[in-house]
């Protein structure tokens, strides 16, 4: 008989250290393994989070990859499991499987301008890559964060964005679809910010994350600007039950989104974006 292999389907208990409410329906949790130890991951990867007795959801990791002592997840409660996650408090436990999936190839952008294009909660999966880029700031040309949110009240990581905006080595441009209150900033879709440029298209790598429609148009805007489609990366969402290519649910054409993605090079999937109900 063969020795049993480690089972990727069994979660490891983590304890919630902190919970911060980011938006009315979005929250960030800091987790530590109950058995101690560290958690290493690459920016763009995700975990399957298990709420005891309720179920599991894939959630991207949104913390700093350089800090292995704590696992950070930003979640928007939109369904049964995420709502159950939302109900957990510091001290509670949840199960973690992962990290799974491909990552934002930050190192491949060394020597380039690096343009992050985020929409809505799509900023969360990009944040680890932003941290990693800032930790290697001297390796890039310009580093630009273009972020589109629904309204000023829906801007994720607002304080952090303000802090980043204060840095002279990072350009942060935020736009909202609908201005409310005393918002004096940009109004319009995030593709408008792409069209405004501010980067050298022939020497630019871009990481794009948001709703699929937004990514499609953002990638097209980058392409129109002259950015090579082979230097544009997107993060795709599909139904995931296992996270590791065993359950078949997340198939997108020839890809298993969970292990061939979620981060894909745009030129390799641009055709798939055009196929309805794939």
């Amino acid at each position: 008989m063969n020795a049993p292999l480690p089972d990727p389907m069994v979660p490891v208990p983590f304890r919630i250290e902190k919970v911060r409410r980011d938006l009315s329906d979005t929250f960030t949790m800091e987790l530590v393994p109950e058995a101690g130890g560290e958690f290493a991951f690459q920016p763009g990867q995700f975990n399957m989070l298990y709420v005891f007795g309720v179920g599991e959801v894939p959630i991207s990791i949104s913390g700093d990859p350089a800090d292995r002592s704590v696992l950070v997840h930003t979640t928007r409660s939109v369904g049964q499991v995420t709502e159950a996650l939302d109900a957990l408090k510091p001290g509670d436990s949840l199960g973690v499987r992962g990290p799974f999936g491909t990552s934002w190839p930050v190192e491949s952008a060394f020597g380039h301008d690096l343009v992050f294009v985020a929409g809505g909660v799509g900023l969360a999966p990009l944040r680890p890559a932003i941290y990693q880029a800032m930790a290697n700031r001297e390796r890039f040309g310009r580093v630009i964060v273009l972020y589109g949110a629904r309204t000023p009240e829906d801007i994720l990581y607002k304080k952090e964005l303000e802090r980043w905006r204060g840095r002279f080595d990072l350009d942060v441009l935020v736009t909202v679809d609908r201005a409310t209150g005393r918002w004096g900033g940009n109004v319009g879709v995030v593709t408008n910010l792409v069209a405004r440029g501010g980067f050298d298209p022939l020497n630019t790598t871009s990481f794009v994350c948001g709703p699929e429609v937004m990514m499609r148009y953002a990638a097209q805007a980058l392409e129109k600007k002259g950015v090579d489609t082979g230097r544009i990366w997107v993060s795709v969402e599909r139904n995931m039950k296992c996270g590791c290519g065993l359950c078949g649910h997340c198939q997108w054409g020839p890809h298993f989104t969970c292990k061939d993605g979620p981060v894909f090079r745009y030129d390799r999937v641009a055709d798939l974006f055009q196929i309805r109900e794939l």
Partner: peptide, 13 residues
């Protein structure tokens, strides 16, 4: 096209 995208309210819950 930007106005149309904006109308979609893509980031709505």
């Amino acid at each position: 096209s930007a106005s149309r995208l904006q109308m979609l309210d893509l980031y709505a819950p």
